[in-house]
Design a binder for these strands. Sequence first.
DNA 1: TATAATGTTGCATACCAGTTGCAATAAGGA
DNA 2: TCCTTATTGCAACTGGTATGCAACATTATA
Lengths: 154, 154
Amino acid sequence: MPLPETEIPGRLQAELMSRGLRMTRQRRTILSVVETAKQHLDASQLLRRARRLDPQIDRVTVYRTLGLLKRHGLIDELDLMHMQGEKHFYERRPQRDHIHMACLRCGKITEFESDLFDRLKGQIQRDCRFHIVVTRLEVGGYCAQCRTTDQPKD
Amino acid sequence: MPLPETEIPGRLQAELMSRGLRMTRQRRTILSVVETAKQHLDASQLLRRARRLDPQIDRVTVYRTLGLLKRHGLIDELDLMHMQGEKHFYERRPQRDHIHMACLRCGKITEFESDLFDRLKGQIQRDCRFHIVVTRLEVGGYCAQCRTTDQPKD
DNA sequence: TATAATGTTGCATACCAGTTGCAATAAGGA
DNA sequence: TCCTTATTGCAACTGGTATGCAACATTATA
Ligand SMILES: [Mn+2]
Ligand SMILES: [Mn+2]
Ligand SMILES: [Zn+2]
Ligand SMILES: [Zn+2]
């Protein structure tokens, strides 16, 4: 599906434009990939998907756009316990922070929102007099399925 | 608690030996550096300190020893928000998990233990039926000093 | 709608942290 | 002490990301 310029801009695009940044074809493409992603994507996955919409897009443009989005606090960078190399994963910054759980056996990533987590962040801000900009809580362990089986992974 | 909680140098070494691993001069050196470190060290800092005790130690041995300690759950790996490149930092796994706060302006790393954090982990294990092996909560933001000043970063 | 100013892109290349293959060496048990 | 097997150091390599720069696209202005 080609990306018509008349399309209603996504939230990321609107945010960047409202901050006076130039909106190029490449940026529109990458932003749309980030916005429509159903899972956490790394830079190379992002590039592959962006290339399906605009085959001549370059990976440096992906990295530079990710850097831009990070600097503007519009996406979060995840390690997901670095289970498959040293790559990083990205997701649009959500309305409410969530926890990422990574199963060390099957690799499944689970998200979890928690009131206790929100309270913990409040405690950090108060007790440590620390102004929080970004948080990352990642948990490694074994999911319900993998806990109960002894089979080799996956 | 059957074992005393005091900072006995050689605890990592004792742990590895009790698990039937060979104790080489290089491992003893690296373990002693990890155990006596007052701050979070990355692999190259670790190598430099190890070389002061044993000048012909190689960096691959540092990486392999870190891998060993990670696999045995004796150290934790930290990103510290990747403020200076993509390197990772290490610390001996503490008796009680703690949070790492990284000031995005001055770079200071602060540690914080919290009952709410312990309860959150309990909630994750229960509500998600997830068996936790390792956790990493990192927070980026501005420390008390940097919050109140407007000077350019350090 | 053309022009100018400035920001962005793609390409090539470099960089950095970490990994791997392999022959030489050392540890720990018999 | 010898023997087996794990570990080491070296060199080369990898994967992920960053940079210099000339060509180009965007946006403001005329
Ligand atoms: Mn990382
Ligand atoms: Mn997520
Ligand atoms: Zn699993
Ligand atoms: Zn600070």
